[in-house]
């Protein structure tokens, strides 16, 4: 399974990932991203890729299995 990983040093809390893929991301009280489910089934990849592209500072990336 692919995994989605967040770089907390890059995250600035734009929350575009949360708006794009609310089942996969949330924002903590500190204003930084929370990845809700790291491991991704194949049918979840499209929306997660959209969320990755929606990040203005490229703080999210997909790791191949």
């Amino acid at each position: 399974m692919s995994r989605v990983v967040a770089d907390m040093t890059k995250c600035q809390g734009y929350a575009n990932c949360v708006v794009t893929a609310p089942d996969h991301f949330d924002l903590g009280e500190d204003g930084k991203v929370r990845v809700l489910s790291q491991a991704l089934a194949d049918d979840q990849l499209t929306v997660v890729r959209e969320a990755i592209d929606a990040c203005p500072v490229a703080a999210l990336r997909l790791e191949a299995p």
Partner: peptide, 15 residues
């Protein structure tokens, strides 16, 4: 200004 968690809530309310 700043306050990212509130910005997210506002985006949802406005949408």
């Amino acid at each position: 200004v700043d306050q990212a968690p509130l910005a997210l809530k506002l985006r949802r309310w406005i949408a």
